[in-house]
């Protein structure tokens, strides 16, 4: 048992029962359980996915952090590791996967492309960062980030989980328990339904500008 993270420091437990008894808060227990078993969605997009696999494999072994159980179905996953370039054609699928994940869920943007478009930002089929659509918890720089960098990012995510409180997290509050992101539509270009009015206005303005 990882007592160091679980127990509250101010209580003195006799040494001979330290492995059996712990005194802690509910928040700490809850966060300790979740931070030690983050199940990532088995979901690779591009080059970064290979480093993600390498981080799971022989030398780096992410299982040490309780993150080795990759789930191919979003219904069983806690964390979406966006590992690679997000393209417009792929985006509806990514958003749909995110919507299908149960709360609590986290998004990690791995690498330059997922964080902001990276070297391919200017491409016509590239979304300049997954954060334009999904709420990102941790960004990992690099092209691709090394497995060490990925693990460092995962530890950051664990630190974030440590700070959560049952009383405050959104999935225990009143109202809908998940955040549904509207699924983008593939039109003459990528249509973000949340921005329909804005797109319409800009297109109309473009027309007046060109006729003037």
């Amino acid at each position: 048992m990882d007592n160091e993270r679980l127990s509250l420091p101010q209580y003195d437990i006799p040494e001979d029962i330290q492995n059996a008894v712990t005194i802690t808060t509910l928040d700490r227990l809850y966060n300790w359980g979740r931070r030690s078993s983050v199940w990532p969605l088995m979901f690779g997009l591009a080059c970064c996915a290979i480093e993600m696999i390498a981080a799971q494999a022989s030398r780096y072994d992410m299982a040490r952090f309780g993150m080795e159980v990759m789930r191919p179905t979003p219904r069983q996953a806690d964390m979406m590791l966006v590992s690679g370039t997000v393209t417009k054609k792929m985006l509806p699928a990514i958003v749909r996967l995110y919507n299908q994940m149960p709360e609590p869920k986290y998004v990690v943007a791995m690498g330059a492309c997922a964080s902001g478009g990276g070297p391919f930002k200017e491409g016509y089929n590239v979304v300049a960062g997954i954060d334009k659509f999904l709420p990102v918890d941790v960004y990992i720089p690099g092209c691709p980030p090394t497995p060490q960098a990925l693990i460092a990012g995962m530890i950051k995510l664990q630190e974030k989980i440590d700070k959560e409180s049952i009383k405050k997290v959104r999935w225990y509050r009143k109202g809908p328990d998940t955040v549904e992101v509207p699924i983008p539509i593939l039109g003459p270009d990528l249509i973000d339904p949340r921005r329909n009015q804005e797109i319409k206005a800009a297109a109309a303005q473009k027309a007046t500008k060109e006729s003037a």
């Binding site: 478009g117 930002k121 016509y124 590239v126 979304v127 300049a128 334009k132 539509i185 039109g187 003459p188 270009d189 990528l190 249509i191 973000d192 339904p193 921005r195 329909n196 804005e198 797109i199 319409k200 800009a202 297109a203 109309a204 303005q205 473009k206 027309a207 060109e210």
Partner: peptide, 18 residues
Amino acid sequence: NPFRDNVKFLENFDPEKW
């Protein structure tokens, strides 16, 4: 970019009618 994103649409495009 007039649409403030990596997209472009023709003049008077209406996304709701697509």
